[in-house]
Design a protein around this nucleic acid. Structure first.
Length: 386
DNA sequence: AAATGCGGGGTAA
DNA sequence: TTACCCCGCATTT
């Protein structure tokens, strides 16, 4: 679209700044929640959007005091990598999510690489003139305005959900290890990053805590079986990113190769379709409020089938599942651990989308997901379950 | 336990 | 003034 094609209203929608005294209120079209906002972007979300309400991002963003209670400012913490630059299988790298809490982050940095036991290293974000990328949130009227400044100059970390699930898993492993130690009276489990592997059966009926099971379901839409939960694994690993410079060039500019892979290369390692209609029906938010009015054309094809698209990434299992799974844990292979995240710059599955401007990246992802949803059965057939 | 938000206070340009 | 940062505290998840 050429600039002259914009109406004055469109221009108003584009020209606002988070610091303006007055922000546009005649918003006709709210944006779909962006999980990985990058570069200099602005979005207007519905005030009903739970993810926007919580100022969520899959980048590790911490609160920053800007002495302005009207505008919430957050800055990026970067990504935690292995100090020895180790690789997991197929060259994947470890990209952990920095803990948001200062104390927890210090603690995290004393921990070892889950893959090689080397030291961990925090790569700070310097994407905004040498400072961390900043995100700004402002609630105004029926909308939540979002603005980001800077381009992330580092790989994506695990999402919040992945990190949480990993923690939960580690905890459960510790618990199960100590339980087995008590039972058998001796150390016999080997640590694989998450802790010792034990042969548990169905997670719904055995030692895997229900909470963990739910958490794993929640993290990316999959319901893992116990062998997946406990197999030797390394979390937060991505491939082909040993050279950050390459990444930077790739990410230049305004986009990130991950965004090109809106769907996993191994698209649907799902043991069941994750959408839970009961949950959606029970949603406290009216469905109509969750859908941005007049969504961009690409996603309209399926948006009516997409339940609660602006819905809760992190609260209601279903939506969480999708958004997190598809946009961050791209390119799963059937053999992969659920938390082995891959990072490929060469999408090779039939559902990847061509390069595009970052602006609609997530919408495209949503479209992709919508398509996936529409073609659920077909795709499940295409991608046999383990 | 960790994430999140708030706000006091500091530094540097 | 602006834009960073650090810290402690309270609340939520």
């Amino acid at each position: 679209m050429q600039p002259e094609d914009f109406s004055s209203e469109d221009k108003e929608m584009l020209s606002w700044d988070i610091n303006d005294m007055k922000l546009p209120q005649n918003v006709k079209k709210t944006d779909w929640f962006q999980e990985w906002p990058d570069s200099y972007e602005k979005y207007i979300y519905s005030s009903e959007d739970r993810n926007a309400q919580r100022h969520l991002s899959s980048w590790a963003m911490r609160n920053t005091n800007n002495h302005n209670s009207r505008i919430l400012k957050k800055s990026c913490l970067g990504v935690v990598v292995c100090g020895l630059d180790c690789s997991v299988d197929e060259g994947r790298k470890i990209y952990l999510r920095p803990a948001i809490c200062d104390k927890a982050r210090q603690k995290q940095q004393r921990k070892r690489c889950p893959n090689c036991d080397g030291p961990l290293k925090l790569i700070p974000c310097r994407g905004h003139g040498g400072f961390p990328v900043t995100n700004f949130w402002r609630h105004d009227g029926r909308f939540i305005f979002f603005q980001s400044k800077g381009e992330h100059d580092h790989p994506k970390p695990e999402t919040k959900l992945e990190a949480e699930a990993r923690r939960a898993m580690k905890k459960a492993h510790a618990a199960s290890s100590s339980a087995s130690l008590k039972l058998k009276g001796g150390p016999e489990t080997k640590s694989y990053g998450f802790g010792g592997a034990t042969d548990l059966a169905d997670p719904t009926s055995t030692m895997v805590p229900t909470k963990l099971y739910e958490k794993c379901k929640l993290s990316n839409g999959r319901i893992y079986n116990s062998s997946e939960l406990l197999q030797p694994s390394v979390s937060g690993a991505f491939s082909d990113y040993s050279d950050l410079q390459t990444w930077n060039k790739n990410a230049a500019f305004g986009r990130n190769p991950l965004n090109d892979n809106c769907c996993p290369s191994y698209p649907f390692p799902l043991t069941s379709w994750p959408y839970d209609f009961t949950s959606a029906q029970n949603s406290s938010e009216p469905f109509s409020q969750q859908i941005p009015v007049e969504p961009p054309a690409p996603k309209t094809s399926c948006h009516s089938l997409w339940p609660n698209p602006g819905g809760d990434l992190y609260e209601e299992k279903v939506h969480v599942d999708f958004n997190s799974y598809y946009s961050s844990t791209t390119c799963h292979s059937p053999q992969e651990d659920p938390f082995l995240l891959t990072y490929t710059s060469h999408p090779h599955h039939p559902y990847s989308l061509p390069g595009k401007s970052n602006k609609w990246g997530f919408d495209e992802e949503m479209r992709c997901m919508g398509l996936d949803h529409c073609n659920n059965e077909m795709l499940l057939n295409l991608c046999p379950l383990r």
